[in-house]
């Protein structure tokens, strides 16, 4: 597997979309390639941080309003 192929597989892996047959070649490549290991770590870290920061809870007034919309329809 080339580094270019590994980058594509890494993104799919992070998205939860990596096909099973590409998993082992990706892990074998990363075992040997420090650059790809680091790229994977950075990309996964950004994704996790973004998810942590960007999850919202709907305000209570909105929860009430939506419940009312559904109840009165």
């Amino acid at each position: 597997m080339t580094c270019e192929d590994a980058h594509l597989s890494m993104h799919d892996y992070i998205s939860g979309e990596l096909a099973a047959e590409h998993y082992k070649p990706l892990m074998d490549h990363m075992d040997e390639c420090m650059n790809c290991q680091e790229f994977f770590r950075q990309t996964a870290h950004i994704q996790t941080t973004m998810r942590d920061f960007m999850l919202y809870e709907a305000p209570s007034e909105l929860q009430t309003a939506v419940s009312s919309i559904l109840a009165n329809a």
Binding site: L55, Y56, E57, A58, L62, V66, S67, L70
Partner: peptide, 8 residues
């Protein structure tokens, strides 16, 4: 209704 937070 269970998707309210994600939608917001």
């Amino acid at each position: 209704l269970c998707h309210l937070d994600r939608l917001y």
